[in-house]
Write a protein that binds this DNA or RNA. Structure first.
Length: 850
RNA sequence: GGGCGAUUAGCUCAGCUGGCUAGAGCACCUCGUUUACACCGAGGGGGUCGGGGGUUCGAGUCCCUCAUCGCCCACCA
């Protein structure tokens, strides 16, 4: 079948994807290699549409997987979806609000059911988007984070930790969003520079002898103050340590304590301690055995034991009222403006309240230790490398991990509390029951659910049917974990810890972290700014292949990068180039052509050697995760070497076997980047019964070096002729030369440089070319050369400068002593060629000296 | 406060372990429709590689320092 004149992606893409699926091409199979290669896709939120970051993720992962598949390895790209606990919860709450309801209108069970259906309905969206982006994912292995096996794995992990004493229940400060009514892990809190006030408040000594002034940004928490702390060496307060002060308004006596974490230079050097509402104070209280007193509730309002007139007020209102009362009663000294960091809910922006709450915690120390060791031993390779060090630091400073979340959407925590002894909890997976009876005692289920990251931390092995599944044996540890650098801490860190804990192995051999895709001006994409780029729209506009190549071009591990539409356009144009090359080849390769490449001409040898370099470079760069470089190699080989030089030369010197072989090779090395168009061409050519996607990565026969150098000379003659023709305004001039090599390719040279004729002579006339080792003259008149004199002078000067620089280098004893021989030889050759060029130029000038 | 990174052509960025006469894409200028392609081809202009210092025969590349920008972490009340 003949190819149409232009490539229309919309006409081919979905058909090609169907073809792959029909042939089961995504199922991992060994094709000549015993090795396996595996990537599990970081599961996107099942409820949402894919964004540009997913586009990048899928492009990168699919490139690698397609490459290894063609290398003959059993290659797995495992797709999945995330129930995305809190993320989806927020979306659903918004939906409820839009229909005039709220979470308080339903029971937890009702909410869970509703959200399940809600997600199920939206899920199809992004599943089709995976296909549009060309992901060669094995759909038979598709996994959802609420699938039975994933939940079962989460319960197994929890149970194991329970038995190993790694989970415990404790009343600690948690980062609580009073709007969403749930706690967060430390990393889920966003700290923002916020303007506020620093209030100076007088706390009188109980004996009435004096007072201490404390500075605070949160006067309302003074209702829960349990101490005033000063630095032990602070001379201002030495006398007061051990005495008590009376908290204004509530008139409670609290001790003055000494603790060396107090900063003497901040505020007054005296700090009020509110253990129930500040992490720092909580830690200090623990050290000094102080009790905790909660005065703020989980809904963000003041609670008893605050004075009656404060109970029920929001924190902000209570703050104003307290300050006013302090002023009225003369406890207020002054107020300063201050900028400080305040934790906010990353979703709704509500100020996070540290509140006391009983939660499940994971003891991280014994989990982090093996992880640190593994990283220090370089068991996992990081791209970029520096992320490894950052992760080690993170592990070393990790606090215990709060895994309870107070939302309905998620995996219920399999723990039940004794109705007789509230401090007694048992592990049980009958979470569909509200309460259970064990040994005659009734137990009530914990209503909280797991932090999403807790269950998704087992993703690398739970998806592979750990511990007994075949997939686990074949594909674990994963070859690469490719994900966004923003989830290095919340996800990657935990997969490493839990992977080591459960499977005793690292979960993946390497980690590739991509940066954020920003808009064209380097701004973060966000709905409110209206600068969000939808990958699916770009695919519709330019084709899936163009999107992939455009998004990969310029990609470097770890760094953020602006979205550049022009790169996608460039890639689209490249697709068209591929298409038209194929058309040319199709028209010029007869049906019965022997596909074994047989190089005859200089161009043939040159092309094969370039192709070999390209295949090597592409392989090497993909294997070292340098995707942009790999793509560039393909791009330049196709455009520059094959299209601009070989095909042009081919029009005078044909060799169908090389054309056939090279096009096949081009389709193969382009396939990981542009899977659709390459397969479409492959199918249309009909040269092979197999699919391109499962064909073998090309092996290139060795080329003759001397012959391929001959073509380099031919190129030089052509290029310089073109330059002179344009610079001197010539029309189809002829060139004369003394070289049998050039003579053998005179038609190609004449055609490419648009020359009238290429003539073999004993001694030529006109202006001699500088860039080739052959003696070549472009046939121009003396008067034309004379007009060109200025340029000749310029060129001569440049050559002289070059020579001076090279001579200086060669005259330098240090250089001659230390530089490697190859570099010295190179310098000598450069000098020699510059000298011969300047000799020619001087000869010309001598002729026109007057 | 700590850590990490960036600063190279008008724009967006490559430049891996020091050898570069500093590259690419887009944009720009000139020329061109030769039967694959105008989603094209040929040619060209444009950078003292943020400033300063150092190591070296040699530095965009290594070290120090300053400046600017960005990101992450952190309990300065």
């Amino acid at each position: 079948m003949k190819l149409t004149k232009t490539y229309d992606p919309g006409k081919y893409e979905s058909k090609i994807y169907d073809l792959w699926e029909k042939h089961d091409a995504f199922t991992p199979k060994h094709r000549g290699s015993k090795e396996s290669f595996s990537i599990v896709i970081p599961p996107p939120n099942a409820n949402g549409d894919l964004h540009i970051g997913h586009g990048l993720t899928l492009a990168l992962e699919d490139i690698v997987v397609r490459y290894h598949r063609m290398k003959g390895k059993a290659s797995l790209l495992l797709p999945g979806a995330d129930h995305a606990g809190f993320e989806t919860w927020v979306v659903y709450e918004k939906y409820l609000a839009s229909i005039g309801k709220s979470r308080f209108d339903y029971s937890r069970e009702e909410l869970y059911e509703q959200i399940w259906d809600f997600v199920d309905k939206n899920k199809t969206n992004y599943l089709s988007q995976f296909r549009i982006l060309g992901a060669s994912a094995d759909w038979k292995r598709y996994t959802y984070t609420l699938d039975k096996k994933i939940v079962a794995q989460a319960y197994k992990t929890f149970e194991k930790m329970w038995q190993d004493g790694l989970v415990y229940r404790d009343e600690k400060l948690v980062n609580f969003c009073t709007y969403h009514g749930t706690g967060f892990a430390d990393i889920e809190v966003t700290h923002k520079e916020t303007k506020g006030y620093l209030w100076y408040i007088k706390y009188p000594l109980s004996d009435g002898s004096d007072h201490i002034t404390v500075a605070t940004t949160r006067p309302e928490t003074m209702l829960g103050d349990m101490a005033v702390a000063v630095h032990p060496d602070d001379p201002r307060y030495k006398e007061m340590v051990g005495k008590t002060v009376r908290v204004p308004i509530v008139d409670r006596d609290i001790p003055v304590i000494a603790d060396d974490t107090v900063d003497q230079t901040f505020g007054t050097g005296a700090v009020k301690i509110t253990p129930a509402h500040d992490q720092n104070d909580f830690d200090m209280a623990t050290r000094h055995n102080l009790p905790q007193l909660s005065v703020i509730g989980h809904d963000g309002t003041m609670i008893t034991p605050s004075p009656k007139e404060y109970v029920g007020l929001s924190v902000a209102v209570a703050r104003e009222k307290i300050v006013q009362e302090l002023i009225d009663r003369d406890f207020h000294e002054k107020r300063e403006e201050i900028t400080h960091n305040v934790g906010h809910c990353y979703k709704c922006g509500t100020v996070i309240e540290p509140l006391l709450r009983e939660q499940w915690f994971v003891r991280v120390e014994s989990l982090a230790k093996p992880a640190i060791q593994a990283l220090k031993k370089d068991s996992i390779v990081f791209y970029p490398e520096n992320k490894k060090k950052q992760l080690i630091t993170y592990f070393e400073n990790l606090r215990d991990w709060n895994i309870s979340r107070q939302i309905a959407w998620g995996i219920p925590i399999p723990a039940f509390q004794s109705s007789e002894d509230p401090s007694k909890w048992i592990f049980d997976t009958r979470v569909e029951e509200e309460s259970i009876t064990v040994d005659g005692v009734v137990y009530h289920r914990d209503h909280d659910v797991f932090d999403t990251w807790f269950s998704s931390s087992s993703w690398p092995y739970a998806t592979l049917d750990y511990p007994d599944g075949n997939d686990f044996k074949s594909f674990y540890p994963l070859s690469v974990m490719e994900t966004g650098s923003d989830i290095l801490y919340p996800w990657v860190s935990r997969m490493i810890m839990l992977g080591l804990y459960e499977t005793r192995e690292i979960p993946f051999e390497s980690v590739y972290l991509h940066g954020l895709i920003q808009d064209e001006h380097g701004q973060k994409m966000s709905k409110s700014k209206g600068n969000v780029v939808n990958p699916i729209e770009k695919v519709k506009e330019y084709g899936s292949d163009a999107f992939r190549m455009g998004i990969v071009s310029g990609e470097a591990a770890g760094s953020n990068r602006p979205f550049t539409e022009s790169k996608i356009i460039g890639a689209r144009n490249f697709c068209n180039k591929l298409w038209n090359i194929a058309r040319f080849v199709q028209e010029n390769v007869p049906k019965d052509t022997d596909p074994t490449p047989k190089a005859h001409s200089a161009a043939d040898h040159w092309l094969l050697s370039k192709l070999q370099h390209t295949v090597d470079a592409v392989s090497k760069n993909i294997e070292s995760n340098r995707f942009s470089e790999a793509y560039n190699s393909v791009y330049h080989f196709v455009r520059d070497d094959f299209a601009d030089w070989y095909i042009e030369a081919y029009k005078s010197e044909s060799n169908p076997s090389i054309l056939h072989f090279t096009l096949e090779s081009i389709l193969k090395i382009s396939h990981p980047f542009a899977p659709f168009i390459t397969e479409a061409i492959w199918q249309q050519l009909g040269w092979s019964d197999e699919l391109l996607i499962t064909s073998a990565w090309p092996i290139i026969p060795k080329a003759n070096v001397a012959a391929s150098k001959d073509f380099e000379e031919i190129k030089r003659v052509v290029i310089e002729s073109r330059q002179l023709i344009l610079a001197m305004g010539l029309k189809k001039p002829q060139i004369e030369h003394t070289s049998p090599v050039l003579d053998a390719h005179k038609e190609a040279i004449a055609r490419m440089a648009k020359l009238g004729d290429v003539i073999l002579v004993k001694k030529g006339r006109g202006l001699q070319l500088l860039s080739t080792k052959h003696a070549v003259w472009i046939n121009v008149t003396d008067s034309e050369i004379k007009e060109y004199k200025d340029t000749i002078v310029l060129q001569l000067n440049q050559q002289k400068e070059t020579q001076a620089r090279l001579r200086q280098r060669l005259d330098n004893p240090g250089y001659m002593k230390s530089a490697p021989e190859s570099i010295i030889t190179q310098t000598q050759e450069q000098l020699a060629s510059s000298l011969s060029a300047s000799a020619l130029l001087e000869k010309e000038l001598a002729r026109f000296s007057n």
